[in-house]
C-alpha cells in the first residue's frame, strides 16, 4: 500500500513541476508578445510608461496595441485548447476538436450573422458565438447518439457539419458583400483587429468557464469511463454531457468571436499535454490553458515579426509549426502509451 501512496505523491509532484513549467512558458510568451514587434519595447520604456500613466509613445503602444493583442492570444489559445480537451473527453474521441467537428464553424456562422446585422463586438457577439458553437456541438452529439455512431463516424459527422456551416457563412458573405468578417484572415484566425470591446466580454466568459470547469474535473474523468460505468457510479451522464458541452462551447465561441476560426490549437495542445501529464483532468485542463495560451501567443509574435514589416495571420504560423510538431509527438509516442 505504501508503494501506491508514494507513486501517487510522485505523480502529484510531476504535475506540480509541469504547472511550474507551463506558468513560466505562459509568462515568457506574454512577455515576448508585449515587447516584440515592429517597435521593440524595452523594460526601461515600459517602466517609464507605467510611471507616466501610459502617456509616452511606448505606453500608448503597450496599452492600445500590444496589451489587448497579447491578452487575446493568451485567452483565446487557452480557451480553445481547454475546449478541445473537454470535447475529446465527452465524445471519447481524440480526433475531436472545436475546429474539426464544426464548433468553430458554428461560432463563425453566428459571428457572420451578427456582423450582417451590424453587431461588431460586446457581450451580444460573444453570446451569439457561444450559441452557434453550442448548437453545432449539440447537433454532432445528438446525431452520433441517435445513430449509434462509432468514434470515426462522429468525426465524419462533424466534418460534414463543418462544411455545411461554412457554406452557409460563404453564402451570406456572397449575398451581403458588406459582411467583411469572413475575410481570409478570419478564416485562418488572426489578432490584428482585436479591440477591448471584443476582448473583455470574451475574457470574462472564458475565465468564468474555466473556474467552473476546475470544480468539475472528477466528473469529467468519470465520464471517460463510458456511459454505463459512469451511471453505475451515480452520475447523471446526460446532464453531465450537456454541462461539459456548454462549457466547451462557451470557451470556443468566445475565442472565435475574438480571433476567428483558429484551428489546430484545440487538437494538438491537448494531445501534447496528455503525453507528459497523463489524462487526468485535474492536470490536463490547467496545463492546456497555460500551454494553449502560451503557444498561440508565441505563434502570434512570430506572425508579427518573422516577415516584418509584413504580418501573416497567426493561423498560418500555427499550421506551419503545429503540423510538424503534431507528427513529431505522434511518432515519438508510437508504441508507447499516453498515460503514466
Amino acid at each position: 500500500m505504501k508503494s501506491s501512496v508514494t507513486s501517487s505523491k510522485n505523480n502529484q509532484k510531476r504535475i506540480k513541476l509541469l504547472y511550474l513549467a507551463g506558468a513560466l512558458f505562459f509568462i515568457a510568451a506574454a512577455f515576448s508578445g508585449i515587447c516584440l514587434g515592429s517597435t521593440r519595447l524595452t523594460i526601461a520604456e515600459l517602466s517609464e510608461a507605467f510611471a507616466k500613466g501610459f502617456e509616452t509613445p511606448a505606453g500608448r503602444i503597450f496599452l492600445y496595441v500590444r496589451l489587448p493583442r497579447t491578452a487575446a492570444c493568451l485567452v483565446c489559445g487557452g480557451a480553445l485548447a481547454v475546449s478541445g480537451a473537454v470535447i475529446q473527453c465527452v465524445l471519447a474521441n481524440r480526433l475531436a476538436s472545436p475546429s474539426v467537428i464544426g464548433v468553430n464553424a458554428g461560432a463563425g456562422l453566428a459571428v457572420t450573422l451578427c456582423t450582417a446585422f451590424g453587431i461588431y463586438g460586446g457581450f451580444r457577439l460573444s453570446a451569439a458565438a457561444f450559441i452557434g458553437a453550442f448548437l453545432a456541438v449539440l447537433c454532432v452529439s445528438l446525431a452520433s447518439r441517435g445513430l449509434g455512431a462509432s468514434r470515426g463516424t462522429v468525426i465524419l459527422l462533424g466534418v460534414a457539419l463543418n462544411s455545411f456551416l461554412n457554406a452557409i457563412s460563404d453564402a451570406i458573405v456572397t449575398l451581403i458583400p458588406e459582411v467583411g468578417v469572413m475575410s481570409s484572415d478570419f478564416r485562418v484566425g488572426e489578432f490584428s483587429s482585436v479591440t477591448y470591446k471584443k476582448l473583455i466580454p470574451a475574457a470574462v466568459i472564458v475565465i468564468l468557464s474555466l473556474a467552473v470547469l476546475a470544480t468539475l474535473t472528477s466528473e469529467l474523468d468519470v465520464l471517460t469511463l463510458g456511459e454505463e460505468s459512469a451511471s453505475g457510479l451515480g452520475m447523471n451522464t446526460r446532464a453531465a454531457r450537456i454541462v461539459f458541452l456548454l462549457i466547451a462551447s462557451l470557451l470556443a465561441g468566445s475565442a472565435v468571436s475574438v480571433a476567428g476560426l483558429l484551428s489546430f490549437v484545440g487538437l494538438i495542445v491537448p494531445h501534447a499535454v496528455r503525453r507528459v501529464s497523463g489524462s487526468r483532468s485535474s492536470g490536463l485542463i490547467g496545463l492546456c490553458a497555460l500551454f494553449g495560451g502560451g503557444f498561440v501567443c508565441l505563434c502570434d509574435t512570430a506572425a508579427r515579426t518573422l516577415f516584418a514589416p509584413y504580418e501573416v495571420p497567426v493561423g498560418i504560423i500555427m499550421a506551419f509549426l503545429g503540423a510538424p510538431f503534431f507528427v513529431f509527438i505522434l511518432a515519438k509516442g508510437k508504441g508507447g502509451h499516453s498515460d503514466a
Binding site: S4, S7, S8, A92, S218, D221, V222, T224, L225, G226, E228, S229, S231, G232, L233, G234, M235, R274, G278, S279, R280, S338, D339, A340
Partner: peptide, 25 residues
Amino acid sequence: IAYLPQGRSVPDMTVGQLVLHGRFP
C-alpha cells in the same frame, strides 16, 4: 449497489485512478 456493465471501453487512466473513482458516489 455497484454495477459493472459488460461492454466497457478501456479508459486512458491507470489502475489506481480507476479504482479511486469507486469513491465517486
